[in-house]
């Protein structure tokens, strides 16, 4: 069959339309304040001043986001990987019920979780702290992580586990030295998504970490501009561009993991 020659140009146009908002954000972030309102298609009145403002004002927030992201990844992996091994390979009693709970857990509205966390944190003094935000953000990733790991570990041949046992390895040793190295790719997928979700989180940040000063993440850094009397679109869009860097890196460097993660959540083969 002859390849349809028109598909590539049409796909380019469609991609252009889809990504127009992203281009528009970049465009504004490089346009001088006086010219932003002119809404020109290119940053004719070019400047990098808005990025200077970002460097000046947003660095603490970026640092917090990085810390929260890394903490969320660590917590998610530590909880999800062993649990998945128990579910997939050690035939945990009641495993089916637990998978059901995990699916349902993902469907709880975030605002309900936020309200619950807020009242608990209020009593425990965990409001406006990094550990508090890490704990809350991890709830976005843990059920997904357990399901992704479990699906992968089911595919590990049982002989491999048996062989390790015959060599006298304990369950823990088998998990650490056999299962974990094989599951590397799943771990990378989980880590990437856990990081991205924690980095992108607005809901928990805006409820549990509203008054944390520099201990607030970058999403709050952007949100600050919205509340301001005179909305500063330039610095705001420049911050948005900087906040999008993890997304860009993910798409450029880790595409195959992204595809694995998107399909794992919804469609089972």
């Amino acid at each position: 069959m002859p390849r349809a020659w028109w598909k590539t140009p049409l796909a380019l146009v469609l991609t252009g339309i889809m990504l127009f908002p992203v281009y528009w954000m970049v465009n504004v972030s490089f346009t001088r304040r006086e010219s932003i309102r002119k809404s020109q298609p290119f940053p004719f009145d070019f400047t990098v001043d808005h990025y200077r403002v970002v460097l000046h004002e947003q660095l603490p927030f970026l640092g917090t986001s990085l810390a929260v992201g890394v903490g969320t990844v660590a917590l998610t992996l530590v909880i999800a990987a062993p649990a998945a091994f128990g579910l997939a390979k050690l035939r945990m009693p009641g495993g089916r019920a637990l998978s059901f709970v995990l699916i349902v857990a993902q469907m709880i509205p975030a605002v309900v979780m936020a309200l619950g966390f807020y009242s608990i944190y209020n009593r425990l003094g965990l409001l406006d702290t990094i550990p508090g935000l890490i704990l809350a953000d991890s709830t976005i990733a843990v059920p997904f992580a357990v399901m992704l790991f479990t699906a992968f570990m089911r595919g590990i041949p049982d002989e491999l586990i048996e062989a390790a046992k015959l060599d006298g390895a304990s369950h823990w040793r088998t998990f650490r030295s056999v299962v974990i190295p094989i599951s590397r790719n799943s771990a990378i997928t989980v880590a990437l998504f856990a990081f991205l979700w924690a980095w992108s989180d607005f809901l928990f940040a805006s409820t549990l970490d509203r008054e944390g000063g520099p201990l607030r993440p970058i999403t709050m850094g952007i949100y600050n501009y919205i509340g301001a009397q005179n909305q500063e679109w330039g610095p705001m869009m420049a911050t948005a561009v900087v906040a999008s860097i993890p997304t860009a890196l993910l798409l450029i460097l880790a595409q195959k993991y992204v595809a694995a993660g998107v399909t794992a959540g919804a469609v089972k083969d």
Binding site: K7, T15, M18, P21, V22, W24, S200, A240, A243, V262
Partner: peptide, 28 residues
């Protein structure tokens, strides 16, 4: 077709961007 895999990956961008980024851009 030519470039299809790359362009399909580009379509993921709105989903992977932090919502606050998309929301403020749409607001603008």
């Amino acid at each position: 077709f030519k470039l299809s895999a790359t362009l399909r990956a580009m379509f993921l961008v709105p989903w992977l961007l932090p919502v606050i980024v998309s929301a403020t851009t749409w607001q603008w």
